[in-house]
Amino acid sequence: MNQALKRSHEPIFWLLFGAGGMLAALIGAMLVLITAFAVPLGLLPADAFSYANMLAFAQNLFGKAFILAVVALFFWHAVHRIFHSLHDVGIHAGTGARVLCYGTALAGTLLTVWALWTIGF
């Protein structure tokens, strides 16, 4: 019987999904508040996200790690759920849907790494 069973490779994607989901659950809403509303609402100074400030943040090693963790994990969390939702609503597109979903996460991750590398240290 065991010969007929094929091992699922879901653990890789499930762990990324879980990590991103946990990060989003812990600080997702606050991040949106900070990046989109804190300055217009006067909670942070007007120049909080000036080019100089953000460049310094993105050149810092901790800053880089934080940006990469948030962007990449949010992507991997989202695409895993979206892929399963497609299955839920009856779109069992298989490899095509898989490549399309997870492809955006992979591309997002690589682009973030590239951008952070370009920004320098």
Binding site: I67, V71, F75, T112
Partner: peptide, 23 residues
């Protein structure tokens, strides 16, 4: 609640655009 993923995806895209612009 599964649908929230689409918005998380949009936000990731928004942040990615930011990082790319910063670069």
């Amino acid at each position: 609640h599964e649908g929230t993923a689409f918005f998380v995806w949009l936000y990731a895209l928004e942040l990615l655009a930011g990082v790319l612009c910063l670069a």
